[in-house]
Amino acid sequence: MLSGLLSGKQAFSQPLPIKTLTSGMHLIQAEVAATDASRTRGLMFRKELAPNHGMLFVFEQPNIQCFWMRNTLLPLSIAFINDDGVITNIADMQPMTENSHCSTAPVRYTLEMEQGWFAKRGIKAGSKITGIR
């Protein structure tokens, strides 16, 4: 599974764990970035994502979370997710920019997917992502 998610060189010295998430009938294979180092690296320098693959960022405490796209080559959509798995907001992010994209409420999780992935499936603020915990 991980080989489909990574492109080119291995992004980390050790592969990140993969978690299967769902939103309705849609399955997501998400690398889990739960350390400072893995969250900082994120999807930087990746040239592609396999279909239905993304990255789940896990934080210790709910907080307003903000992301940018420095050194990120792929256009992404990010869902900000509260402790109950409910999406608070989704933002589309352009590659190689430093524009901030922030949650509208304190969240513990964010999920980055290929840009447009959520919209194409009718997943929006108020939708639920299951399998996070």
Rank of each mutant, 00 (worst) to 15 (best):
L73G: 03
P75S: 08
S3K: 13
C102Y: 10
K128C: 00
I90E: 05
L43T: 04
L5K: 12
S127C: 06
F12I: 11
P95D: 02
D83M: 07
P51L: 08
A91F: 09
Q10P: 14
R121H: 07
P95H: 05
P75C: 09
L49V: 08
L2T: 12
R70N: 00
Q115C: 10
T130D: 04
Q65V: 02
M44N: 10
M25Q: 15
H101A: 07
Q61P: 06
E60R: 14
S38T: 03
E31M: 07
E98L: 04
F57M: 05
M93A: 09
N99S: 09
L76E: 02
M69T: 01
L2I: 13
G116A: 13
G42H: 04
D84P: 03
K124I: 05
E31Q: 12
A119G: 14
H101G: 07
S23Q: 11
M1E: 09
M113A: 09
F59W: 05
A34R: 14
A91C: 10
V32G: 12
C66R: 00
L74N: 00
Q65C: 01
A11I: 04
M96N: 04
D83I: 04
I129E: 03
K19C: 13
T97N: 00
P17I: 12
G122F: 09
R108N: 10
K19M: 15
H101I: 08
N71I: 00
P15H: 13
I64H: 05
K19H: 14
A91P: 08
A30K: 10
